[in-house]
């Protein structure tokens, strides 16, 4: 048995040796992992919502039904539509969607072997609005109906609104999960610290007799908890990063155009990285105030 200690020990409480310490490390790592995954999810959904919002505001599509007997008539209708929109102040750009692009859009449904010219495909006119302008779609639809029958305005708004509502629900849900993870972590620290106080009751009594204040004891817990927070924070974020990389590689195989738009900006990366310090501070402060409060009540 090694009966000598070389270095002088400035912390009288052997916190690293009790069961509560290990419990705290495990709980804290799991919490950081869940927090990181959820927060990243929140930022991804947020990014999707912003992109979708932008596309609602930025533009819309006009469908021009073809004249099955006279192709020239179809082209005239398209020209009328383009001229109509070019005359409006709020319009930035109007263009006819090319055959190639329509073919690409239809490919998932029709496959490679269908000749589009054989089908009565509507012509699509893509309309982009100037920044800061919003359109009154019902008015546009009414005007178009007058000058160019067989057209319809597809503002994407209905289905995008549904998607936005869904995404916003997910955002609220992720916020709820973040709060729950935070609370469960805080309560775990609270009870682990109380358990540890029970384990070291005799030492704490001796320290009090020696003149130690509650603050002196609480600082030892705070210091230890801070380092546990840093350690478990780094491990938790690292595991979460691995999990997210795996999920990302899986998601990249889903090509639908919807998920492609999700990305993390610099602020999101900073927020995720700061979870480590945030976790350490939460552990430190919770442990500190738990000790102060508990000692003030029971001893």
């Amino acid at each position: 048995m090694n009966n000598k200690v070389k270095k002088h020990n400035h912390s009288e409480l052997p916190l690293e040796k009790d069961g509560a310490d290990l419990f705290l490390k495990i709980i804290s790592t799991i919490s950081v992992f869940l927090f990181t995954i959820t927060l990243t999810g929140y930022f991804m959904v947020n990014s999707l919502v912003n992109n979708w919002d932008k596309s609602i505001v930025d533009g819309f599509t006009i469908q021009v039904m073809p004249d099955e007997k006279d192709v020239t008539q179809t082209e005239l209708r398209v020209n009328k539509v383009i001229v109509f929109f070019e005359s409006l102040e709020e319009i930035e750009k109007v263009r006819l969607v090319g055959e190639k692009q329509i073919h690409k859009l239809m490919k998932p449904w029709l496959g490679d072997n269908v000749e589009l010219s054989d089908l009565p495909m509507p012509k699509l006119v893509d309309v982009r609005l100037k920044k800061g302008f919003k359109s009154d779609f019902s008015k546009i639809a009414a005007n178009l109906a007058e000058i160019a029958p067989y057209t319809s305005v597809n503002s994407h708004q209905v289905w995008l609104n549904k998607l936005l509502n869904f995404a916003k629900s997910i955002k609220i849900l992720t916020c709820g999960i973040l709060i729950l993870v935070f609370l469960s972590c805080t309560f775990s620290i609270f009870y682990a610290t109380k358990t540890s106080l029970g384990i070291h009751k005799n030492i704490i009594e001796i320290l009090h007799v020696m003149g130690a204040t509650d603050d002196y004891i609480a600082k030892q817990y705070a210091r230890r908890s801070f380092f546990i927070g840093l350690f478990s924070g780094i491990i938790g974020v690292f595991i979460a990063a691995l999990a997210l990389t795996f999920i990302q590689s899986f998601a990249s195989e889903l090509k639908g155009g919807i998920f492609d738009k999700a990305s993390l900006n610099f602020g999101a990366y900073i927020s995720i990285a700061s979870i480590v310090m945030f976790n350490a501070l939460i552990l430190m402060l919770t442990a500190y105030y738990t000790v102060k409060r508990t000692l003030g009540k029971i001893m």
Binding site: K4, V5, H8, N9, H10, E12, P14, K17, N202, I203, I206, L207, V209, M210, G211, A212, T213, Y216
Partner: peptide, 23 residues
């Protein structure tokens, strides 16, 4: 009522450390 996990030195140092004396 010594702190059994600490050295003799650290036990004797406790009352001074709680007072914040320099090492």
């Amino acid at each position: 009522r010594l702190l059994e996990h600490l050295s003799a030195y650290d036990n004797v140092a406790v009352p001074l450390r709680v007072r914040g004396m320099n090492e």
